[in-house]
């Protein structure tokens, strides 16, 4: 999986774009990228999932962890344009009700 972090005009916001499979093997890299953004004061994160082919439960747990961390800091973690396979998983697990999805 590729992760790219993009700056946005708002100083507290960062965009993380993921590509490929997002599973237990890739979760640590995502956690590192998210923690680095949070530690640098970016509490509003947009995770772009357009090109993610697959997510497993470990990956979903990382997204939930990130969402909670952002909200505790007064921000939010939004899922942006999830691909069809990801959207299906979010709907099946009803996690679409927990996340902000744009």
């Amino acid at each position: 999986m590729d992760i790219s972090v993009t700056e946005t005009p708002a100083p507290t916001t960062r965009s993380l774009t993921l590509r490929g499979r997002f599973d237990a093997h890739e979760a640590p890299a995502f956690r590192d990228a998210l923690d680095a953004a949070m530690d640098n004061g970016h509490h509003d994160l947009a995770v772009v999932l357009t090109d993610v082919e697959f997510v497993d439960s470990t990956a979903l747990a990382e997204l939930v962890r990130g969402m909670k961390r952002c909200r505790e800091a007064g921000g939010d973690l939004a899922l942006v344009s999830p691909s069809d396979p990801v959207r299906v998983i979010l709907e099946l697990t009803k996690l679409d009700a927990a996340f902000t999805i744009r």
Binding site: L92, T93, K94, L95, A97, A98
Partner: peptide, 24 residues
């Protein structure tokens, strides 16, 4: 159902899924 799948009832040779009502 808190976010679990697949869950359903098979009736008349058809699988009727029971959707999640709340997140895990």
């Amino acid at each position: 159902n808190a976010g679990h799948s697949p869950v359903g009832i098979v009736r008349n040779a058809t699988f009727q899924p029971l959707a999640a009502q709340l997140p895990p």
